[in-house]
Design a protein around this nucleic acid. Sequence first.
DNA 1: ACCTGAACACCGTTCAAGT
DNA 2: ACCTGAACACCGTTCAAGT
Lengths: 195, 195
Amino acid sequence: MSSRHRYHHGDLRRALTDAALALVGERGPKGFSLTEVARRAGVSAAAPYRHFTDKADLLATVATLGFRQLRAALEAVPEGGDERERLVRMGRCYVRWALDHPDFYLVMFGSDSKQPEHTELVRAAEDAFRVLLDAISAAGSSGVLHVEDPHRWAGSLWSVVHGTATLAIGRDLQHTGITTPAEDLAALTIGALLR
Amino acid sequence: MSSRHRYHHGDLRRALTDAALALVGERGPKGFSLTEVARRAGVSAAAPYRHFTDKADLLATVATLGFRQLRAALEAVPEGGDERERLVRMGRCYVRWALDHPDFYLVMFGSDSKQPEHTELVRAAEDAFRVLLDAISAAGSSGVLHVEDPHRWAGSLWSVVHGTATLAIGRDLQHTGITTPAEDLAALTIGALLR
DNA sequence: ACCTGAACACCGTTCAAGT
DNA sequence: ACCTGAACACCGTTCAAGT
């Protein structure tokens, strides 16, 4: 309570990322301030610079955690049934995750994050992407889908779910009179795409 | 050159939006500062508040102009041939426009703009959306495409082009090894979708 | 090695005061 | 009616100085 306790954090880096995660959830990528993160961790505004090169670096770390969470969610999509149906379920899962963590999602794809080609971030994003890629390859080799270029298919599906998610988060779908829930819209689009 | 000329703008509002347009093009939605816009227009930092309620209000004005430009580009897509082919061409046009004006595009869909439910912005966005909607309806009534809910189809196509465009702008496609140019990817996706 | 305190340059926004 | 100047609260970042 009093400031006579000098903060001797065992792991300030961890405390800062935790605070950053919470702050992003509360105020979004907008209104996110490094100073506020430091304040919440109980340290001076200069302290974070001992652990992160930059505000962008801290945001990139947050984004990395986001991609890992998203990957875990996608991996948890049950197998079984038609491989095409699984792709539809994965699309639903992707959009649902994005809408459940809108600010998180915006940080992950915000231009703030990937300035310094943050290695871990790129890897985490690739890992999440690979889940989608594998599901497509599975559909291809099971013969239920004609796949010559998995990457191209993955690009198509990713565009669909990312586009649907971001338009939904920005309320653009509603503004233009699209009443279909985002998750259903993505599922319908993917279904048509794989037909 | 000297500051003894007191600026007696006939249309400061216009000068500010012009400066804002240029600044967005130079520095992107990031690094965009109201103070800098005022500086470029040759007025004090407080002057813009006589013409815009907010920084967000000025950005919303910029976004509005963007949607009008995009709409014009989409309307210029030639008719003729299969109506499905026209939808593919419109998709190409959309993605090309976005990649030609990436910062502009990010402002249009950035969360900064649509805080105050800016009326003109919403209308401009709707107008652009309607071009897509009309093209879909045309394909429906010509019988080349089975359309029961044009809005749902429009939502699908919009998700595809918006998703492709934003992933391309953020370099996410390249980072994940998708070598197909964004414009081609969108065209292929839409083609598969309408088949 | 890690953190503080003070400093710097920069914002967005408000408001009295000028013309 | 429109703009300036000064002010306020807030940033991100740097750096000498403390422990």
